[in-house]
Amino acid sequence: MTDTAAAVNAPSPMEPSMYRVTARDVESHDTVTLTLAPMADALPAPNPGQFFMLWAFGIGEAPISVAGVTADGSIVHTIRAVGAVTDALVALRPGDPVGMRGPYGTSWPVDAAAGADVLVVAGGLGLAPVRPVIDAIAADPSRFRSRRVLIGARTPGALLYPGASARWESQGVAVQRIVDRAGPDWTGPVGLITKLIEQSTLSEHTHAFLCGPEPMMRFSAMALIDQGVPPEQIWVSLERNMHCAYGHCGHCQLGSLFVCRDGPIVSWAAAQAVVRIPQR
């Protein structure tokens, strides 16, 4: 039985904590990276893969993945302006307040990949939610047998965190980047990210972390399975409409999953049956 008496005094799950923008880095014409520090008490530290609900006062909330945590505990988010809430978030300037609640959801099982071959596959803005995985393996590379990151974007200008790749390389992480459409200065490979997957050496010892548009994750997972990676070791970050982030509004349902609670990070073994059915 549920304890109604205790539930009456439970804190409101809608209560935001107020944070302040302490840094704003422009990634592209519609995308910025914000660093947010608490004005009073900090929320619990997020695990890689989790997300917060960010509140733009007067507009509304949007779920945004954690792209990093700084040494002083500030939260880093990379946000693309695609509608009312994200437009308002992208327009924030250092000093501006922003409401936060969370962290919510499941995390990337990085520790389970210790001793194994790690492969990160990121498409477009999908690099933001897996960035904490890359930072974690770069911080302690000897824990993993090998480390490889594949990054895809539509154009060279849409590649996030241009400075980070060189740093990750210097920390023992192999980084390969590919674009759909090359510009005049692009000397790297052109095509879909699955092309890089096909050129990689993979095995049943590979643990893969995938984030990007759903078709990209689907094709990537299939390419990985073709090369012997078990579906239980392939992890994806799912995205669905979200209103509450705590399992009450119903919007994020995908089959039996509440993506806000049972996701966003789900193994391909669990996700494939639902993700493969159109309009599920």
Partner: peptide
């Protein structure tokens, strides 16, 4: 009233 997520 799920203990993991309660609507007070």
């Amino acid at each position: 009233l799920d203990p993991e997520a309660t609507d007070p």
